[in-house]
Design a protein around this nucleic acid. Sequence first.
RNA 1: GGUCCCAUAGCUCAACUGGAUAGAGCAACGGUUUUCUAAACCGUAGGUCGCAGGUUCGAGUCCUGCUGGGACUACCA
Length: 593
Amino acid sequence: MFNALQILNTSISNALISLYNLSSVELSFQKTKSDFEGDFTLVTFNLTKPTKQSPDAIGKAIGDYLLLHEPIVEYYNVVKGFLNIGLKSNFWLSYFENIRENSGIGLKAKNSSGKTIMLEYSSPNTNKPLHLGHIRNNLLGFSMAKVLEANGHKVIKANLVNDRGIHICKSMLAWLKLGKGETPQSSKMKGDHLVGKYYVEFDKLYKAEIAELVKQGKSKEEAEKSAPVILEAQQMLQRWESGDKDVIELWKLMNSWVYDGFKETYANIGVAFDKMYYESNTYLLGKELVEEGLTKNVFYKKQNGSVAIDLSNDGLDEKIVLRSDGTSVYITQDIGTAIERFKEFPELQQLIYTVGNEQDYHFKVLFKILEKLGYKWAKECYHLSYGMVELPDGKMKSREGTVVDADDLLQEMYETAERTTSELGKVEGFTEEELKTLYRTISLGALKYFILKVDPKKKMLFNPAESIDFNGNTGPFIQYTYARIKSILRKAEKIEKFDINRIELTPIERELIRTIYDFEAIIEEAAKLYNPSIVANYAYELTKLFNRFYHEFNIIREEDATLKNFRLSLSQSCSHVIQNSMDLLGINVPDRM
RNA sequence: GGUCCCAUAGCUCAACUGGAUAGAGCAACGGUUUUCUAAACCGUAGGUCGCAGGUUCGAGUCCUGCUGGGACUACCA
């Protein structure tokens, strides 16, 4: 009923039939640029060939047709082949009347699409604390889940914890050698940081041994393979795999430290999971599938006994799926876990992996193998690939300690929020507890928005020296605008009934309604493109627009009661959309700040 | 060597997926508060969209080549 594009599309299609006897033509619409008069713009260039008319003539002919036949159209103008169409204020006002009581504008009802999606994200290693790169993963995954839910899908948020492997053994070994029984309690250190400390210690030992061996005349490569400490770590991994009691016990202990730490960080940034997977349970999966793949001739055995798949016809290379000693490689278990998940959740229709773009190739191979094994759902697997977070001097490396630690950053942001807030001095009457919540809301808002406003596909730069801004295109700016609206609504106390037909829209009011109207399409687009930054940029646009409105009119002092209540109601709807769009990003908004 | 990704204002990012005069924020400069929260608003300045071709009525966007940056290419995870 209020789908303007659909209405226009139908009317213009009719116009083309009536005017040129043309049917089934793809029409190209866009939002009218703000420098021109209108709401929607039809691009007419692609119609010149079939109609043999000039763009301007087509625009004029369609425009005239619309004026006669389409009641929602008020006026039109044609500029250089662009047909700008203005809808009647009446259309926008009835739309607004229709949605203004609705606090969930644009959101689809829960599970209304009937589609179930598993979205994997976070998936940390348990040998080190989370850094800014992991934060991007977590925020992106969590937000994407929210966006998909807003489109009516059921989302199972999954976390596959990489809790085993050589890297964990490195931490364990270094702790045994140097730890002197140190625990999170004894050191007053967060568990994941403590384990991470020994991961770095291992690397130091390892590097020293390599240097020593090189000095003795070995090549670097040889040294890396034969350094005693790495051999010891490998041995430890073998003992783990054979179920050695001591190793398993230490592994459990150190992992439990890490989990306590992660739990705290996850709670702090406000992400959650529906389903936890652990690689120690899944790493053997997939081996039996290799057998299946062999009988299907998808895989082949090489002379040395290893099993591989040739993907060179698909633009990829040969990929080993089983070592010559019969053990799995990483992709083997990925094949296994994917299949396992579709068995576990028969209703599953899509599987999304939130993993950095370093693994683009890996997922191409994985999906291709699944396809070749004959799983129909293989084409519903999607790699939500995101770019690395880089520092001014390059990529972050845990081993070398050149990382922005997640917990440190969150703490820093919190302190900045606290300092900025008290400098501005607008929080009289807040309790200690309310202040803490506010600082958290603002600091997380700043960080999350900073990360999510960037297109996930692109790498992004974080400059610790400049930190994250609280002014301009930022989370706190949007939160502030929300608080402003809430303040007005508090002061007004209530919105009285008003006759919408008495309203004459000013340009900015019209633009606000129009922008609210766009929200639904934005949510759909963000899901379609797997891109929360579309929501972030939208929230900013709406917020900026509202601030202009706010400066242009004093809402509370408006003497015309109809106008006043209309503007209050419009402000309220803006607050709903701002709140909902921020919620899709996993960001809270405060009533006061 | 091969494959893939990226390059837009001094800095960080947009550009509705091929459409109009490429837009925001930060930083710089100037203005706005006895009026609903100045974490705001208005204005000025800032661009050979890495370079060179091509396709198209139309290219930041698509194709080719080049330059610069990055990732992947392991019987690592």
